[in-house]
Computed example of a mutant assay.
Amino acid sequence: MSQAIRWGILGTGKIAKAFASALKDTPGAELAAVASRSADSAAAFAAEFGAARSHASYQALADDADIDVVYIATPHPMHHDNAMLCLRGGKGVLVEKSFTMNRPQAEEIIALARQKKLFVMEAMWTRFMPAVQEAKRIVDSGEIGRAVQVNADFGFAADFAPEHRVLNPELGGGALLDLGIYPLSMAAFFLGAVESVQAQAQMGPTGVDVQTAFSLRHEGGGLSACSCSLLARTPTELTISGSKGFVRLHDRFHNTEEISVTLVSGAARSSRSIVLPRSGNGYAHEAIEVGRCLRAGLIESPIMPHAETLALMGVLDTIREQIGLRYGADRNDG
């Protein structure tokens, strides 16, 4: 591997552009190549973000010998095939969330990565934010007592046409996979593995969920209450509570720069705020972790390990079963 981590980006949509911008804020990273199914789209993306090469097919990117790792930036239903393609080409992958459409697909990706000894990670960028890492340190320190409860929401009013990715079942639409993955992943990050889940949803006219609420029981006994919505602009906050107080990640918790710690003892109450700026648009932090892992010869990140990605995909499958949300990939997997 060269000194710089040589990135490829598969896809040229909004999230791909955000990640390409973040690579400029990532020490020791270079955008080596981009791929699209359109030569013009790939060339325009490469020119805008300074990629050394552009490819008119995903296969060409997978075959590019001068790439260390590929960021998969396509819609959810394409993640499995795109990741498998790149792994077969000998490339590590950072796969945008939701990681896949279901757990069986995730198992195939991780099995191939382990067989080939290649890096793979779910792109849950929130876990790597400085403010979130500090919140985790505070919770683990015991300052708020034993953490036993998480409350988290993520919602916005999606004023989109029915064919838009967020509402289109053929593109993996729905509140759960697009937004609910955040409260779910963060609840597990702070309280540990999920033991059981109960969910309810409001389904929309396109057949996907437009609001979902779910409660989690964690293996350590803690409980989480989570919700996601494409109908309401919710507070989008996350609170971790223990016997001595609580830590709150404020508005747009998924990329917040501010947390507060409140301690309560009888009638006494004290609060402090902590501001921890993110780098650029925030995506650089997960890219930095990928680079660290690659240089260390790791095939998974301890912050977003394979086992947890698999477990959370399984929880999402259970929630979808409870609310009656099915996709084409489920039929393909029997």
Results as ranks from 00 to 15, higher is better:
residue 102 N to P: 06
residue 41 S to G: 14
residue 92 G to P: 03
residue 65 A to R: 13
residue 102 N to G: 07
residue 84 M to W: 00
residue 65 A to M: 11
residue 72 I to E: 02
residue 91 K to S: 09
residue 43 A to M: 09
residue 54 S to A: 14
residue 13 G to F: 04
residue 99 F to M: 08
residue 58 Y to M: 15
residue 9 I to S: 01
residue 20 A to I: 03
residue 44 A to W: 00
residue 100 T to C: 13
residue 103 R to V: 05
residue 80 H to S: 11
residue 45 F to I: 04
residue 96 E to D: 14
residue 67 I to C: 06
residue 85 L to W: 01
residue 29 A to D: 07
residue 56 A to N: 13
residue 15 I to R: 10
residue 61 L to S: 08
residue 21 S to D: 13
residue 62 A to F: 02
residue 49 F to H: 14
residue 82 N to S: 14
residue 89 G to F: 01
residue 49 F to P: 07
residue 92 G to L: 06
residue 83 A to G: 12
residue 10 L to N: 08
residue 51 A to R: 05
residue 29 A to G: 15
residue 12 T to C: 14
residue 7 W to G: 02
residue 81 D to V: 14
residue 39 A to W: 00
residue 77 P to I: 08
residue 19 F to L: 08
residue 69 V to M: 09
residue 101 M to D: 02
residue 38 S to P: 15
residue 18 A to W: 04
residue 18 A to G: 15
residue 82 N to V: 10
residue 93 V to D: 01
residue 68 D to H: 02
residue 26 T to P: 09
residue 79 H to S: 09
residue 69 V to D: 02
residue 16 A to R: 02
residue 92 G to T: 04
residue 50 G to S: 11
residue 31 L to A: 07
residue 15 I to F: 13
residue 10 L to E: 03
residue 100 T to K: 02
residue 28 G to I: 08
